[in-house]
């Protein structure tokens, strides 16, 4: 009996000792050590339970077993309670110690920027692609044939003077194209009608460098050839383009002009988006901005391509990328595009 009594006392002692010790514990790792000590496989508690088998009376065994289970449950419960409150305490502490000045700058690599002309080319390309124009490319180093002859530009036309076009040492007929209209011819030679293309690319003119002129610049060429293409469709296409490019409806003005490869030809002005025809610095106080040249493809141009273009009509247009970029972004000097000052590029 004494044994039994002792057993009970011993169990209660362990329980009391454990619970007393627990009140001193303030860290999770100490709690784990406590758990090992009182609830682990090698704990006093377990050692004691091993002796349980030596009790003969089933009744006693049962009652001590029940007591042991209750104590174990109590300790486990205490452990879990302590664990939860300790971890809460620790996170609270971590939060307290780890707060930062959230206004300090972010750590990052500087972001890169596209060149403004890239952005404008992409924008123009997307607009025309949306209107069903395929984007095609043609070479910059061209021949007299594609740059002039095929475009109905007379051998004696002033544009063919050395003054305006760069010629090369490759061969007498090899030059740096002075217009992207060359691609009209190349596209028509490759494809049967109907076709609807645009081409964006670099062109060259023998001009002195100043705020408005650079010997290298970029043009967008558009061409639509089909049966019964008419001037009204040309007007629709360009009006749409101007509205989409400037992101608002702008009045346009088609006025007569002369290009050897189109007839009738027109120069297209749009209402200055900055002053609404009141006159400002951007439009040179004219109220209108000259945007592009266009016209119906000259019959001689189609005839030069060959018989598959007989009975077809077309319209074509061309515009300067730098000019559009300068208007769109309010840039006042073309040389910025080619100096590539990072402070310039980073603005776009």
């Amino acid at each position: 009996m004494v044994f039994n009594e002792n057993f009970e006392i011993e169990l209660n002692n362990i329980k009391n000792e454990a619970l007393t010790k627990l009140t001193d514990i303030n860290k999770i790792d100490l709690l784990e050590i406590w758990k090992q000590e009182y609830l682990g496989r090698k704990s006093k508690f377990n050692d004691l339970l091993k002796l349980l088998g030596k009790i003969d009376s089933i009744e006693q065994k049962k009652s001590i077993g029940e007591l042991a289970n209750t104590i174990k449950e109590t300790l486990n419960q205490s452990y879990e309670n302590y664990q939860q409150s300790l971890s809460e305490l620790e996170i609270t502490k971590q939060i307290e110690t780890e707060s930062i000045d959230i206004t300090l700058p972010g750590l990052n690599r500087k972001s890169g920027h596209y060149h403004p002309l890239s952005l404008i080319c992409q924008r123009i390309g997307n607009i025309f692609q949306g209107m069903g124009f395929n984007q095609v490319f043609g070479p910059e180093i061209e021949t007299n044939y594609y740059n002039f002859d095929a475009l109905n530009i007379d051998f004696d036309h002033p544009a063919r003077d050395e003054q305006d076009t760069f010629y090369t040492n490759v061969a007498p007929h090899v030059l740096l194209r002075s217009q992207t209209s060359t691609v009209q011819i190349r596209a028509m030679e490759k494809t049967n009608p109907p076709l609807k293309i645009i081409s964006i690319g670099r062109v060259y003119r023998n001009e002195e460098i100043n705020a408005r002129k650079y010997p290298i610049f970029h043009q967008v060429e558009g061409l639509y050839v089909n049966k019964n293409v008419n001037f009204g469709q040309l007007k629709w296409t360009l009006q749409k383009f101007i509205n989409l490019f400037f992101e608002r409806d702008l009045k346009t003005r088609f006025r007569p002009d002369f290009f050897p490869f189109t007839e009738p030809s027109a120069e297209v002005d749009c209402e200055c988006p900055f002053c609404e025809t009141q006159g400002c610095k951007t439009c040179g106080y004219k109220g209108w901005l000259e945007i592009l040249g266009c016209g119906m493809v000259h019959p001689n141009v189609l005839k030069n391509i060959g018989p598959n273009y007989e009975n077809y009509e077309g319209f074509a247009f061309g515009m300067g990328v730098e000019r559009l970029a300068m208007i769109k972004f309010g840039i006042n000097d073309i040389r910025y595009f080619y100096n590539n000052d990072i402070r310039f590029i980073e603005q776009f």
Binding site: R109, K110, S111, G112, H113, Y114, H115, L117, S118, E140, I141, E162, F166, Y167, T168, N169, V170, L176, R202, Y204, N206, E207, E208, I209, P215, I216, F337, Y338, N340, I342, I345, E346
Partner: peptide
């Protein structure tokens, strides 16, 4: 651009160099 590079557009006409094969403009500015 994602890596942080800035895009540049430079002149395709450059000063004369030693390369004998380069294409020369007969009437440069």
């Amino acid at each position: 651009v994602g890596y942080g590079f800035n895009e540049i557009w430079t002149s395709s006409l450059i000063p004369k160099n030693i390369s004998a094969n380069s294409i020369r403009v007969l009437n440069p500015i």
